[in-house]
């Protein structure tokens, strides 16, 4: 059994809605509502959801840039939602982030050398020569030419910039990298490059990834375990096999059926299937969601497979169905 690196327990991030004359808090936006996930060392954990599902907020909370309403995030057994604990553990060195938009996440007025060296300068005391050596080494890892340290971000293409982002994230030898849609802004062939580099680095340095994406194809390629988020809550957790072969929640099925398939031969059947699932989703809304439209708590179905099933006889039926399958 692999050792866990991060345990998220009952994490909640709520934003207050203020209204009325006194501007009092009248309600909350439940951006992240009671989610629990465990990420193991050296694995890629996929977090999937549509826009507004709270997946990025979860990622930010794990990195420690988003204040948490309640719940805990355990790293080495210590709750790092408190800044004091983060400092004590050097947590900000061990957990890094890769952002979606490589243009806005790199300072346009800094040279690549300074961009990549910044995290090193924060955490290590290196001489100028040692530092330059380390930057060169990092550029080598992501396959960039060594003369790029004197260039500025705008001189690179999107894929190269994203690789610089990866190099910067790897600079402090982190244990976990939160990758928030790292390839959504990239073209197909460039995406392949970045994903390959991310995989190689993972194998080389045993880094865990929290891979946040809306692209189910990419997540399938990258991660062993994954969680699906909807309306701030988890809908289904499981291994790649559980989710892609035996999806149980209607939302997961809907999401899977909506991925465009490169199968021209069967596209009519695929379309029909998609519309059936969509119809089922529309009809059974109240069966799969409670009266406030929230997702039910997760229930264990098998081993690692957890599904947000309603609390009636339906779940037994579904479990039987799965065992039969």
């Amino acid at each position: 059994m692999a050792k866990e690196i991060i345990q998220v327990k009952n994490l909640k991030v709520h934003y207050p809605i203020r209204s009325g004359f006194w501007n009092r808090i009248t309600d909350y936006v439940r951006a992240v509502d009671d989610i629990s996930i465990t990420i193991n060392e050296g694995e890629t954990y996929g977090l999937i959801g549509e826009s507004g599902s709270g997946k990025s907020t979860t990622g930010k909370a794990i990195v420690g840039v988003e204040p948490v309403t309640s719940g805990s995030i355990l790293y080495k057994g210590v709750d790092i939602t408190k800044a004091k604990n983060r400092r004590k553990l050097n947590y900000n060195k061990d957990v890094q982030m890769i952002f979606q938009d490589s243009m806005s996440s790199l300072n346009p007025r800094k040279r690549i050398e300074d961009i990549i060296a910044e995290p090193i300068r924060n955490f290590e005391n290196l001489t100028t020569d040692q530092e330059r050596e380390r930057v060169q080494e990092l550029l080598d890892i992501v396959g960039m030419p060594s003369d790029s340290i004197y260039k500025y971000p705008h001189e690179f293409s999107g894929g190269q910039r994203q690789r610089i982002g990866v190099a910067r994230a790897v600079a402090t030898n982190p244990r976990l990298i939160v990758a928030d849609e790292p390839t959504s802004a990239l073209d197909l062939s460039v995406q392949a490059q970045v994903l390959n580099f991310m995989k190689h680095i993972q194998q080389q340095y045993n880094i865990a990834y929290l891979f946040i994406s809306h692209d189910l194809g990419v997540v399938k390629h990258m991660s062993e375990n994954l969680a699906i988020m909807h309306r701030g809550r988890l809908v289904e957790i499981g291994s790649r096999e559980d989710i892609y072969k035996h999806p149980m929640h209607i939302y997961t099925k809907r999401l899977l059926s909506a991925i465009p398939q490169v199968d021209v031969e069967h596209r009519e059947e695929h379309k029909k299937h998609r519309q059936e699932v969509e119809q089922e989703f529309q009809n059974d809304q109240d069966k799969w969601y409670d009266k406030d439209g929230r997702v039910f708590p997760l229930q264990q179905v098998s081993g690692k497979h957890l599904v947000a099933l309603p609390k009636d006889e339906l779940n037994e039926e579904k479990i039987n169905e799965k065992e039969g399958a």
Binding site: S189, Q191, A192, N196, M222
Partner: peptide
């Protein structure tokens, strides 16, 4: 280069160079 293949362990095909 589409990440669609059944064999997930394999590297994706990369087109050399840039446009």
């Amino acid at each position: 280069s589409m990440p669609q293949s059944e064999d997930e362990e394999e590297d994706l095909h990369v087109i050399q160079g840039t446009v």
